[in-house]
Amino acid sequence: MVATSVTNSIRRLRFDADEMTQKTLAEKVGVTRQTIVAIEKAKYAPSLELAFLIAQVFEKPLEEVFHFNRDTD
């Protein structure tokens, strides 16, 4: 069985960016605060477009913001 998940460093990056709030980040990328919360907790994997937008806000490459974990049992 193959399980996949996308984790991220958004919480740390927000902290590094003058403690940017979830609401501010949400407004910058055009989603609700609840969606940022779900992404941070890795409960929701964003679309590629949204992932790029979030990475752009932090001025980081995509792979520094999002991490793909592939676990094989």
Partner: peptide, 9 residues
């Protein structure tokens, strides 16, 4: 007030 509907919604 926001009436935004995003991709997760």
């Amino acid at each position: 007030p926001s009436t935004l509907v995003d991709e997760r919604d």
